[in-house]
Amino acid sequence: MSPEILSLEERFQSRIDAEIKIEPKDWMPEKYRKTLIRQISQHAHSEIVGMLPEGNWITRAPSLRRKSVLLAKVQDEAGHGLYLYSAAETLGISRDELVEQLLTGKAKYSSIFNYPTTSWADMGAIGWLVDGAAIMNQVMLTRTSYGPYARAMVRICKEESFHQRQGYEIMMTLAKGTPEQKAMAQDSLNRWWWPSLMMFGPNDAASTHSAQSMKWKIKRKSNDELRQAFVDSAMPQVEYLGLTVPDPDLKWNEERGHYDFGAIDWDEFWSVVKGNGPCNRQRMRTKQKAHKEGAWVREAAMAHAEKRRQRAVEQDEKVA
């Protein structure tokens, strides 16, 4: 590496160490830029694909109240995707490229959305556990070193709290309901518990990007730290519902002041990441179909705007 680049990198790191945010026009190492594009776009794609499992239940919500809430939540997810795409675009990648990476499978999204939503209770478990796990990660990211990403996260976190509360409310209603309803809640918790813990990613020792991301303060807590914080915060909520988690090894550890929990099935995790989850193919097909079928709308809107601009010019010429 040339001495010039080296000194730029040193200056960059000293800014990070001094907690000075990096903004779009500031010099940054190429690898910092690439890491952020990968992470922010993956986050954006997760918000967008995340609309599908919940969208599945909009027409079958049990009441108008639940339906309005679910619609608002899914609309928020679209908004979160857009905030994040905008943040990624400040790093010099276009929206078209980002969308293409999603549709060709080059970019990943959170594996959690490759699990199916087979009962209404899943709307509760997702809001409570999946959004709850996402919040743990996102609260940390409000302090990430890249300004536009941090600002998008602040906005998202403000909105995310509603998502978790509405989910827990659904779980409370079911848990207090008939034995069948309570069983529904338990079944849903059983199915979403482990995938939620997997959302934090591989164990620290196996996490490829972690060390550099911590040094650059893109991340400020490790996968395992966040996962532990999530389990600790979720357990009292599980107990309040009178439900159990599908983990015989889960118990309070007085000495550590944390819950211990069993080993995660990493084979399942990697299998879903690599495309073999229950819904990977379905999610991709849905996104590709929507993009293809929406092409004429995007083109027509552009043509219409162009025509209006043209007319305005002609009008001006006539007046002149």
Partner: peptide, 11 residues
């Protein structure tokens, strides 16, 4: 507040 894509100012 942020940015977004649109065909014209109205949109």
């Amino acid at each position: 507040a942020g940015s977004l894509h649109a065909v014209d100012a109205t949109m």
